[in-house]
């Protein structure tokens, strides 16, 4: 690049940040996932009329806001535990990260457990998804969120193994960051489920 000659080539000028690329890519995936929930909520709005209950249980009968609030606490606390693990990551503490992830997983299991208990009790009363369009929608919307939680739990387990075995390599750190996005996102979705299904339904 001598004199007025413009710069045409930059050997080694490739300065991409692989961590930022991955977290951004994962964020995009989450936007797409958010639209899955947008579509489900739109459908929930449509199937939430009196006649969609087809004489079966209505929102009032299936939405127990106090029980759901315990779930809310579980998922929020789980996200907090995961977040604290990230604070430990900053300090480079493997044990701290493992403990935080472990706590997040336990609280996540509590959430899933409460949800399964809730579903089981509903089904025990004959309130099943096959009963009506409304109930189909209720169960599927809540279960899709639950499946995300289950998937996140599996992922947390894998990450605990990777932190233990590999330590904080670039890949592992990237995945810890993306998993945090995913896990926190489940709390955000739950806010919508809690408010628009459980609280609104309880009216």
């Amino acid at each position: 690049m001598s004199g007025a000659q413009p710069v045409l080539w930059l050997p080694g000028g490739e300065e991409h940040d692989p961590i930022a690329n991955k977290t951004f890519g994962f964020w995009l995936y989450m936007m797409s996932d958010a639209l899955i929930f947008a579509a489900l909520f739109a459908a929930y709005g449509v199937l939430d009329h009196r006649f969609n209950a087809a004489g079966g249980a209505t929102a009032r009968q299936v939405a127990h806001p106090v029980d759901a609030f315990w779930q809310t606490l579980a998922v929020f606390a789980s996200v907090l535990a995961y977040s604290l693990a990230m604070v430990k990551l900053k300090a480079g503490s493997r044990l701290g990260v493992l403990l935080g992830l472990g706590a997040a997983a336990l609280l996540g299991l509590v959430f899933i457990g409460l949800e399964i208990a809730d579903f089981a009790s509903l089904i025990g009363q004959g309130i099943t998804p096959e009963r009506s369009g409304f109930l189909s929608m209720f169960f599927v919307l809540v279960a899709v969120h639950g499946l995300h939680m289950l998937f996140g739990l599996l992922w947390i387990a894998v990450m605990m193994a990777q932190v233990a075995l590999k330590g904080f390599t670039t890949e592992v750190v990237t995945r810890l960051l993306t998993l945090r996005l995913f896990w926190t996102f489940q709390a955000s979705i739950w806010v919508c489920v809690f408010v628009f299904v459980y609280l609104r339904g309880a009216f």
């Binding site: 459908a43 449509v46 087809a54 998804p129 009506s132 369009g133 409304f134 189909s136």
Partner: peptide
Amino acid sequence: LGTHFYTAGLGGNLML
């Protein structure tokens, strides 16, 4: 699974 999202009866909604 036999749900009723789009069925004509039992509270489904085909327009959905």
